[in-house]
Amino acid sequence: MAAIETLVPPAKVAAAGAGSPVTVEARDVNVYYGEKQALKQVDLDVRRHEVTALIGPSGCGKSTFLRCINRMNDVIEGCRVTGRISLDGEDIYDSDLDVVALRARVGMVFQKPNPFPKSVYDNVAYGPRIHGMAANRGELDEIVANSLERAGLLKEVRDRLNDPGTGLSGGQQQRLCIARAIAVNPEVILMDEPCSALDPIATARIEELIDEIRANYTIVIVTHSMQQAARVSQRTAFFHLGELVEAGDTPEIFTSPRDRRTHGYITGRFG
């Protein structure tokens, strides 16, 4: 157990205060892919301006849960969601809700960097253009520069704004995708294993970035790396076979898990 304790920097423990308000609230969430039930009765709170890590073995439902929050599951044939997920108290599965507008409020970064085959500038400007967020070119330039700056990419690409985004390195592409998500000014950013396709240096850069932007956004991150979960998150939720086994403050989960399965997973005994 001592080995795990060293994974958690003391600063993070202090940051994980219990007082922040809840941004995303999930109650009794069940997800079915056709006949197969992928999530069972999940209750989870995601707190404002905190990083919540979803961990668990492959196929445990953590990505499914993530994709419920911006309703990306809608596009999957035969997928059915029951229960209630609310964003700032508003039910996002309400039939009146505008899904497109929801996705502007809940951004997403994918496992594999997926920049559009456009220039770096156009990649970041894509969202603001669609949502009419800039009145003129000057404002758009500002949004793009700002987003790239926040994603820690501006210095590296300042002279390459018109080069194709697909020409950047893997880590830069992923930060470009984060800048692209930031550009529409979302409340929540969902990250689906954002570092699994990156080398350790690029991973460290992204983790730093997550820690920096946490001040302005609520972040939910799916990760296979328990070290990563321990490093970047304030709260951790452990999924297993479609169930939310246990959720709590990250240091607590990693030092004194209540459930036997959590204990087994974080000590590497299974999964």
């Binding site: 596009v75 996705r103 994918f110 997926n114 920049p115 669609i130 949502h131 692209r180 529409v184």
Partner: peptide, 17 residues
């Protein structure tokens, strides 16, 4: 790739956009 369509949808773009 589907990932590009997903990326666009996740930014709040409609299908035709």
């Amino acid at each position: 790739p589907q990932s590009l369509r997903d990326g666009s949808a996740a930014l709040g773009a409609t299908k035709s956009e």
